[in-house]
Amino acid sequence: MTSSTVNYSFRVDREIKRQCEAMYNELGINLATAFNVFMRQSLRAGGFPFNVRLEEPNRETIMAMIEAENIAKDPDAKRYSDVEEALKDLKEE
């Protein structure tokens, strides 16, 4: 009878591997089982089983973006015609 499994070899950072082995060991599984879980979840999700992003803003940046949006929508917010006017106003404060 032929085995339905295959051996697959790939390179991974030594420290990442060590950390993952320790973490999965605490969960009661080995790295090969974790990788199989990842692949099965990928098939179910039709891609990565988690969001893959280049960069996600931190909480402080998100709050600043919301504040900027609110200021832009506020009809009573002070407006400037050029950068020099805004800088002059900042120096006076």
Rank of each mutant, 00 (worst) to 15 (best):
Q19I: 03
E69P: 00
E26D: 06
C20W: 12
L90H: 11
N70M: 01
K78D: 00
T5A: 14
K88S: 12
Q19N: 14
V6D: 13
Y8A: 11
T2G: 13
M39D: 09
E21K: 04
I71W: 05
S9I: 07
N25M: 04
L87F: 08
E21G: 02
V52S: 12
I29R: 09
Y80M: 01
D74R: 01
R11W: 05
E84G: 12
E67R: 01
R59E: 14
E55Q: 08
A45I: 09
A34T: 02
A64T: 06
S4M: 02
L54R: 15
G47I: 02
A86R: 10
N70W: 00
R79Y: 02
A45P: 08
R40N: 13
E15W: 10
V37E: 12
A77F: 02
E26V: 01
I66K: 02
E26S: 04
K91C: 09
T5V: 11
F10G: 09
A45Q: 13
G28P: 04
E69G: 02
L43P: 12
D82F: 02
K17W: 03
A34I: 01
A72G: 01
S9D: 13
N58C: 10
R14G: 07
L27H: 05
K73V: 00
Q41A: 12
E55L: 08
A68D: 09
G47F: 01
E67I: 00
G28Y: 04
E84L: 14
R44G: 07
L31Y: 15
N70F: 00
S9Q: 14
Y8Q: 10
T2A: 15
Y80R: 03
A77T: 03
E93M: 07
R79I: 00
L54Y: 13
M63A: 08
D74Q: 04
M65W: 13
R40T: 13
D76T: 06
M63Q: 15
G46A: 05
M23Y: 14
D82G: 06
N7K: 15
G46T: 06
A77H: 03
A86Q: 11
R14P: 12
N70E: 01
K78Q: 03
V6S: 13
D82E: 03
S9W: 06
S3Y: 11
R40I: 07
M39Q: 10
N30R: 01
D74W: 02
L43D: 15
I71E: 08
T61H: 05
T33W: 02
C20G: 07
V52Q: 07
S81I: 03
M1V: 10
E26Q: 06
K17T: 04
R53I: 07
V83L: 15
M63T: 11
E93L: 13
P49E: 09
G46V: 03
F48A: 11
A32K: 10
I66P: 00
Y24Q: 10
F38W: 14
R79D: 00
D13M: 01
F48K: 05
K17L: 06
K73Y: 02
K88V: 04
V37P: 05
N30D: 08
Y8W: 12
L87N: 09
G46L: 04
Y24K: 11
E93I: 08
I29S: 08
F35D: 11
D89Q: 07
V37H: 15
N7A: 13
N30F: 00
D13F: 04
N7V: 10
A45R: 15
R18T: 13
